[in-house]
Design a protein around this nucleic acid. Sequence first.
RNA 1: CGCGGGGUGGAGCAGCCCGGUAGCUCGCGAGGCUCAUAACCUCGAGGUCGCAGGUUCGAAUCCUGUCCCCGCCA
Length: 680
Amino acid sequence: MARILVTSALPYANGPIHLGHLVEYIQTDIWVRFQKLHGRRCIYVCADDTHGTAIMIRARQEGVREEDLIARMQQAHLADFSGFQIAFDNYGSTHSAENRAFCEEIWQALRHDDLVSEKEVEQLYDSAAGTFLADRFVRGTCPKCKAPDQYGDSCDKCGAHYDATDLIDPKSKHSGATPEIRKAKHLFVGIERLHAFLDQWTTSGALQTEISNYLKGHFLHEPLRDWDVSRPAPYFGFEIPDSPGNYWYVWFDAPIGYIASTKQWCDRHNEQLGDWWRSDETEVHHFIGKDITYFHTLFWPAMLKTAGYNLPKKVHIHGFLTVNGQKMAKSKGTFIKAAAYLEQLDPAYLRYYYASKLGGNVEDLDLNLDEFLTKVNSDIVGKFVNLASRTANFVRKSGLAKVYPDDGGLFAAAAHDGAAIAEAYEACDFAKAMRLIMTAADRANKFIDENAPWNLRGPEQAARQLDVCTIGLNLFRQLAVYLAPVLPKMAQDIGEFMNGALTHWSQSQQPLVGTPVDKFQHLMQRVDQKKIDAMVAASAEPDPATAPAAPAPSAGNVPTDGDEALKAEPLTAECTVDDLAKIDLRVCRIIAAEEVAEAKKLLKLTISLGGDTRRTVFAGIKGCYDPAKLVGKLYICVANLAPRKMKFGLSEGMMLAAGGEGDVHLLIPDEGSKPGQRIH
RNA sequence: CGCGGGGUGGAGCAGCCCGGUAGCUCGCGAGGCUCAUAACCUCGAGGUCGCAGGUUCGAAUCCUGUCCCCGCCA
């Protein structure tokens, strides 16, 4: 194939990059680097996704122009990506002249094929904020099961799907106002006419089988519904030229951003866009998360087909990231932003860890922080880097041997593995590639152990020592080539250390001889548990996503809170100061915490009130807090509560906490307070 | 009977497509080495491969049934 064009999904310009996003960018970047390492013509394009109501509202809240907001966000995104060594060939924006031009062109093609129709749509309108409300910006009571505080499209509690206009007692998340129902004209693209094409394309090998099964079961088994692609003003986006007052829905112009970004690259490199998007000699590969499957596997191919662009050769779909087995949560410190990671840890760790877990399927990927530490340390530092670390010093003066010695077939074996490793990379089964590489590293370490170059002293053994170390370093370099897509920075350092840049996969097939070797310097520090802890601590936010669309501090906005909690648990009868004084609340420090195995909700806590005063408290917070993370921190307890015998032991107090039933939040005294201090 | 994914030694996984008495990493136990970032090497304990049937000379691998877990702003 003459050309390979690769994309990752466009990150939305409404928030920072976090470790979940990075699964995709790291996966894509590894794949692209692998292609380039083979000398293939491959470019990697991406862009910020900048349109939509959310951006508009946020800009208003911050009192800035949308253009300024998205420009700032793009800078932040680019900094995060470059920190993780994600090497885009072009990073654009959907709010670009190029993108507008391609939107218009594709729109014309849809019009030309008579796929566009108009319909009246009833939608909730927030007159206080002056905007129509997308489903996720309105909350109200489920019309089916009456659960309060549900989104506009479906109910968390009963799973019902409905229209936002059916919500009982709806409230806008923007202003808190009760929205009204307004009618507006929307434009629709009818893709049912492309049904047969989509049946064929979705089963053509472009998609993982679980994805094509899913599409068949959920969408393609019945007539495809028309796709609502316009939004009435006010909206931040591109106005539709032949429908003034209406704008393309953000999901219409977002994927077109792939083409627009390619165009920017072409203009810079004097290339023709047609060679990359209208050519049988080009493969287009999209990498996306499972949440945006249907935009990329139904609407997008339909648009491309209609407008005569290349169809994706493959849409690689990955799962979500969980951290320590659970959804990322700000309250647990597992909603980790890229920037927070980079403050503490080497991006290479995460690149390797993700690579070792990515098998090219749609399964969710778990970042287990304990495993992260042991895996990176033992694989990269203990096995791989160690090869150089234990041999380099012996060849500093001499450089590598002039002739590659007999190594019992080790180099040849690992060279032979190269085909299987490449195949695994190609198939996005990086986990398999890493396993193969580490097996080869094991063989190399064993060789060094058996040949003990440190015992080969004196002039009569110098030649043998040189040979052994030449072998060791060549096996190391060979693996460095294999790992280069995952660890590009380290590959570069290794190239410098061994005085020969690693630029092509074929370098794994030929040993290096006769060249000088620099003084060995540590290529990677071991992962430090303290750094991980610091990252988690810095990411923890006591207040989870209850606040609406994060108001800017500068604007001085106070978030509008709902009254669900108050309704659920009304205020109790008045009490006197004396009543209050009966309760002795104290600052305490948790000095031990463990789960009660037999209990569903209990943690056994040992708390200190200062000095030798200790208490054992059973708190119903299992599942809400990781015991290990509690230890050492200050909280507030009821210190004079009568002890109570429980099945599991004596509980001598109670921890103060808000919420309940799986959603418990311990109270934290402000900085400076000390164990034993009474709360007045 | 919604769809999909999964159940393999303490943890995380590979093997399953193309059946031949179970493998890797971490952890654990013992020993070795001392070149190396408490790294490396050897040996060991630990699994009737969710359960029950079936096919077969033989099944983790194929078939049937069943239980359990996870995801479905997929």
